[in-house]
Design a protein around this nucleic acid. Structure first.
Length: 273
DNA sequence: AATATATCCAACCGCATCCGA
DNA sequence: CTCGGATGCGGTTGGATATAT
């Protein structure tokens, strides 16, 4: 009854990844690209299910990942997008280059939610809490107001209002949290500013279209591509990845990521012995 | 210093969706 | 059109770490 679990085979490992496993997966993906995940464990010599490999790669090992806390601008963008998209973390993550849905989801649950509550804003509806108490009957989660295919006039019409609200949040945070402001890079601020000041771009953020900002970063396979083929966009644009396989990638700004990964591998290997 | 409690985040689980046969 | 396999997504869990008592 029901679907068989994908990882029910004996000998399929679960739990935290070891450095050795990371190494195998990194080497495999860098050499062969992201092909069908089901085949990856076997081909890479891993005793994991494909799902687990995909998750490990997309959430942790991918070289284009940013590390560390979300900047203020990113956080603000997450709030904006959450107000429109609800808990559609992958959609939100798609608008934040180098961030994963898991990361954003975790950050939302641990940081942003609390911040909004502290400020008297309901993190689900993005309405002021006291206002919500009076209009509880009609209020639902933002996701429920959302269009399935991006044509909800209410949302479009409310963009300015929502933008304003979110700018207020941003501004009040600037006053209350200098550390956040320090964390926010100039690039991020510019990114957010340009997005917020450009209505068409801002509107496009919550439509199911790849924004210009993201297009510059997008290294993921396009959906229409056959997964068995290494996506040309990824390979063509990231020839460096293949070069990175055997030597440093410090010239590309990803040095922290891979060297961290490999450092971690080294450290963990030492610890294990 | 020891213990309890809170917080964070990587990873898992199960359902939804996509897509080819 | 239907079915079944593969992948994607969002919710949840559990272990590690930080903080409070």
């Amino acid at each position: 009854m029901g679907r068989q679990p994908c990882c029910d085979k004996l000998g399929v490992k679960k739990g935290p990844w070891t450095a050795e496993e990371d190494k195998k997966l990194i080497n495999f993906i860098l050499t062969n690209g992201q092909c069908c995940w089901r085949a990856v464990p076997k081909l890479a010599g891993l005793k994991r299910c494909g799902k687990s490999c995909r998750l490990r790669w997309t959430n942790y090992l991918r070289p284009d990942l940013k590390r560390g806390l979300l900047t203020q601008a990113e956080e603000q963008l997450v709030i904006d997008l959450h107000a429109r998209l609800g808990n559609r973390w992958s959609k939100i993550a798609a608008r934040l280059p180098g961030r994963t849905d898991n990361e954003i989801k975790n950050h939302w649950n641990t940081h942003i939610k609390k911040k909004l509550l502290k400020m008297g804003i309901d993190p689900v509806t993005h309405e002021p809490l006291n206002k919500q108490a009076t209009s509880q009957n009609s209020s639902t989660s933002p996701a429920e107001h959302l269009p399935q295919a991006g044509n909800n006039n209410n949302n479009i019409n409310n963009l300015d209002e929502a933008k304003e609200t979110n700018h207020e949040i941003l501004n009040s945070e600037e006053n209350s949290s200098s550390s956040l402001a320090e964390n926010s890079s100039g690039e991020d601020s510019l990114l957010l500013d340009s997005i917020c000041s450009d209505d068409s771009l801002y509107d496009s953020l919550w439509l199911d279209e790849t924004p210009l900002v993201e297009a510059l970063w997008d290294t993921t396979p396009k959906p229409q591509n056959n997964d068995m083929n290494f996506p040309p966009s990824w390979e063509d644009n990231c020839a460096w990845l293949l070069e990175c396989q055997d030597f440093g990638i410090h010239d590309f700004g990803f040095n922290d990521i891979k060297s961290n990964a490999l450092q971690t591998i080294g450290v963990e290997e030492e610890e294990q012995h």
